[in-house]
Amino acid sequence: MSLRDHFDAVTADTDRADGLAVDRDKAIAIAVFLIPGLTLFTIFSVAPIVYSAIGSFYSWDTFTMEHFVGFDNWIRSLTDPLIVNWSNMREFQYPMGALTHNLLWVVLHVPASTFLGLALALLFADLKGRRILRSMVFAGFTVPPIVIGLVLMFVYDPQAGIFNEFLRVIGQGHLVRNWTQSPQVAIYALIAGGIWVHTGFSMLLYSSALSAIDPSLIESAKVDGANAWRRFWDIIWPLVKPVTAVVVIMGIIWVMRMFDIVYAAGGAAGGPNHAYSVLGIEVYRAAFRPQIDYGMAMVVALLQLFIVAPLALYIARMR
């Protein structure tokens, strides 16, 4: 058999339909392996979303779907002062509505925890004992949020709380109060606690991003004449940008889904007169507390989803 014959035989082989048959077998195999995962995903993720989406257009008698009511649930929920309280917002009086509170968390908590995380990561980068320091800061994030909520209760306690004690020590005794129960300041007290927890997370991500930067880039910038601020602004900040995107979006998702800390501090009402209620609390109350309003629970949950899903999708598709 000459080389030519060999060559022809090889090309003839690939010309036949074998290739297609192999591909079909592969496709079947892939499908079989996907079934368990997809089943779970469908039952626990897709189905509830679809069920809520449909259910939000029906009237409910406790947990029984009754008849189609169009946008009734939606209009009722979105105009509910518990979700957005326009009149209180004009006067800057709490409660301003769960959605407003959630957005306030986004505006205050996310930038603060992001920058604090970056600052600590930069500070710890060349420090002796940085591992211990990092572990200490990150420890907050490993504690279940419900426990964080309880810890905050203790921290802000008017008698035993360390925060009030601190105020007394620095001579600001007149500021002492039960922080989690004072409507006008409680939400800030909780956000501060949230920042403490989430800073550990952003610090950890930034630390690994910083250690991934080639040290010779920083040295090169030094030789090029860049001072510390320019080195940060021109070199480090652009190089950790992808991490910033992840930290910010994860932060937004985290606070949009906020429930435990608020529940621990203020119960199912979300503080005195719903002073710092969030969407998660409203879903819980509408669904499981009398007067049960299942339609509204579905609408509010979908509202959360609409805000969070595109962000999650963005992260998932990030290169």
């Binding site: 080639d214 010779s216 040295e219 090169s220 030094k222 030789v223 004449g225 860049a226």
Partner: peptide, 16 residues
């Protein structure tokens, strides 16, 4: 380094 007015080429080039 900046006040010495030196320029340096690194082994891995260190391009930004």
């Amino acid at each position: 380094p900046s006040s010495r007015n030196v320029a340096m080429v690194f082994q891995n080039y260190a391009l930004y």
